[in-house]
Design a protein around this nucleic acid. Structure first.
Length: 270
DNA sequence: ACTTTAGCCTGTCGGC
DNA sequence: TGCCGACAGGCTAAAG
């Protein structure tokens, strides 16, 4: 399930193959993703050069002179570079074929992903209200603490809200709260400043380490280079219900919070 | 303004 | 062996 580290790993896997290359054509086999794939993509992209591939939140941005392709992997989406002669499998919804016969192939069994087109990332409704990048300059404990004033929701739901900070999904929310020693159900406005500082640091370090491990492969995630992610073996609490906490040995607990499974240590997190 | 809930979708898994 | 319901989850829109 792609969160920020998996999206970043995908970006790094495909960028060397695509940046500076000209798009030859685009094959859309299935338009019914999270939102319909707009016709601009197959109409405007052919002939364009992909200047760069950036990431904003969990979106990949493909920069061209005609506009910007937005790609979101949803929760079952993946991208990889293939020879375009390779036959498409079920759920291979879009190919972006480049001049050397290679292609970017987008697969997404659950179709929660999206492929969109924009001319201004800053004004696009899906991107315009997003909070800061967790690995960027403006994200720190002071910011988090200030943003939490008057917020009565749980701290876990708070940090998973993209308007607060982007890229923190279900796995890394549980992990960073463990590292910061904060109970996931604690009200956001009742996390004191020192622990908010620790939380910001924990979010940054867990995401950074996951990127370095190539992301977390739980079931079917593979990076742009076809390799699974190796962060799973470093998970402290996620999907470890009943197993001993690595810090205090007491069993890891699980609760459902906002329809999301949530894992934590009752002893280490308050 | 904030919070909660429903819904999108299919592969996988446990139970019978 | 096969059927079936539950579950997984990022994110938005709508409802509260």
């Amino acid at each position: 399930m792609p969160e920020l580290p998996e999206v970043e790993t995908s970006r790094r896997g495909i960028a060397p193959w695509l940046e500076g290359m000209r798009v030859e054509n685009v094959v859309v086999r299935e338009r019914r993703l999270r939102w319909p794939v707009p016709a601009e993509i197959d109409r405007l992209l052919p002939g364009e050069i992909i200047h760069s591939i950036r990431r904003r939140a969990k979106y990949l941005l493909f920069d061209t002179d005609a506009g910007i392709l937005l790609l979101h992997l949803g929760m079952s989406g993946s991208v990889r570079i293939i020879d375009h002669s390779e036959p498409a499998a079920k759920h291979d919804h879009v190919d972006i074929v480049i001049e050397d016969g290679k292609a970017l192939r987008f697969r997404d069994p659950r179709r929660f992903g999206s492929m969109l087109w924009t001319n201004d990332v800053g004004k696009h409704p899906l991107l315009r209200d997003l909070g800061p990048e967790p690995l960027g300059e403006e994200f720190d404990g002071d910011y988090l603490w200030q943003a939490a004033r008057g917020r009565r929701i749980s701290i876990k739901q708070f940090i998973m809200n993209g308007a607060v900070v982007v890229g923190v999904g279900n796995i890394y929310a549980s992990e960073s709260l463990f590292l910061a020693g904060i109970h996931p159900l604690r009200r956001a406005d009742r996390v004191a400043m020192p622990r908010m500082q620790l939380l910001a640091t924990s979010i940054r370090s867990v995401l950074q380490q996951a990127i370095e491990a190539g992301g977390t492969t739980l079931r079917d995630y593979y990076g742009g280079d076809g390799e699974p992610g190796y962060f799973r073996q470093q998970l402290e609490v996620y999907a470890r219900e009943g197993e001993p906490c690595r810090r205090c040995k007491s069993p890891i607990a699980a609760v459902v919070l906002g329809q999301r499974s949530t894992f934590y240590c009752k002893r280490c997190q308050r």
